[in-house]
């Protein structure tokens, strides 16, 4: 029974991680670089959601929508400011790293400037936890899981079935060829940033609900990174599976050895995983082009 409890809590936590890791993987797929501004974008959007909606007494849904919209807009602006010219000039991909790191410090810097080092709390959106046959399930877990699952399924459908999704996949596969085939590469990249930003906003709100809102909330993005590495860098299904596994492992670790040491062990697990199976669960094989 205890194990089942871990699995349930783990999946709830993992669904938030899945939002982070898919948002990150989406950009990784399209531009082939790790977007380190993703974490700070989560913080930025979560705070905007707080000030625009939650602080005015609006409910969960407006807060989520505000945060997601902020995430999309800011990500779009970030693409224009930090990545567009690197892409056009086709300079070394290491500039993407620098740009994204810089963008991250910028977002976090703005948040710190506005709120200081203070902690904020979202109002209580949810009622008492449900007790069911010896299991305790909090309402927030259920709702967070349902929303995350819904969003991810919709995303999968969009990527698989729609024109925009197909364009996105072909741009991920080979930007130059896609462009020759008449696909608007810039628009596809913008589309990826819009989705990725929305996912960041959503994840930011959920993290804020689970913990509190604080300026370095974004450093929890590392969970999404670890999930992507375990799942296989660049694979969207891998990112989701990795996130779920990480969630379950982490809740188990937190209940057994405490929350303090949990990050140490999750890190060690990732390290060992990389040694044994560097391609991750999904076995993605990202190689530099010969």
């Amino acid at each position: 029974m205890q194990i089942l409890q871990y699995v349930i809590n783990g999946i709830a936590l993992g669904s938030v991680y899945a939002l982070i890791s898919t948002g990150f993987s989406l950009i990784f797929n399209v531009l082939k670089f790790s977007n380190f501004s993703h974490g700070a974008l989560m913080t930025f959007s979560a705070f905007t959601g707080y000030f625009v909606a939650a602080a005015n007494g609006w409910g969960l849904v407006p807060t989520i929508l505000a945060a997601a919209a902020t995430g999309s807009l800011v990500a779009l602006a970030g693409e224009f400011v930090a990545f567009r010219r690197i892409l056009i000039r086709n300079t070394s991909p290491i500039y993407f790293f620098v740009s994204s790191i810089t963008l991250g410090t910028l977002f976090e810097g703005i948040v710190v400037l506005q709120v200081g080092a203070n902690f904020y709390n979202y109002p209580r959106f949810f009622g008492k936890p449900l007790k069911l046959a010896g299991l305790v399930i909090s309402q927030s877990d259920i709702i967070i899981f349902c929303i995350s699952a819904f969003v991810l399924v919709v995303l999968a459908l969009v990527i698989q079935k729609t024109r925009l999704g197909r364009a996105l996949r072909s741009v991920s596969f080979d930007r130059d060829t896609a462009s020759l085939m008449g696909i608007d590469v810039t628009r596809s990249i913008q589309f990826a940033f819009i989705i990725s930003g929305a996912l960041a906003g959503l994840a930011g709100v959920f993290l804020g609900i689970n913990y509190t809102l604080y300026p370095t909330l974004g450093s929890l993005v590392v969970k999404g990174f670890i999930a992507s590495v375990i799942g296989g860098l660049g694979s969207l299904p891998g990112a989701v599976i990795g996130a779920m596994l990480l969630g379950i492992v982490e809740t188990t670790l937190i209940s057994t050895i405490g929350s303090g040491y949990a990050p140490v062990f999750t890190f060690l697990i990732m390290l060992v995983f990389l040694l044994v199976r560097p391609r991750g669960i999904a076995g993605s094989n990202i190689q530099e082009k010969a």
Binding site: V222, S228, V229, Y261, P263, V264, T266, F267, M270, Q287
Partner: peptide
């Protein structure tokens, strides 16, 4: 690929802080 060292060191930093 180079992404891994960034991702892994980021996780490492968090682990050390913890």
């Amino acid at each position: 690929r180079r992404d891994y060292i960034s991702l892994v060191t980021l996780g490492f930093g968090e682990a050390i802080t913890a």
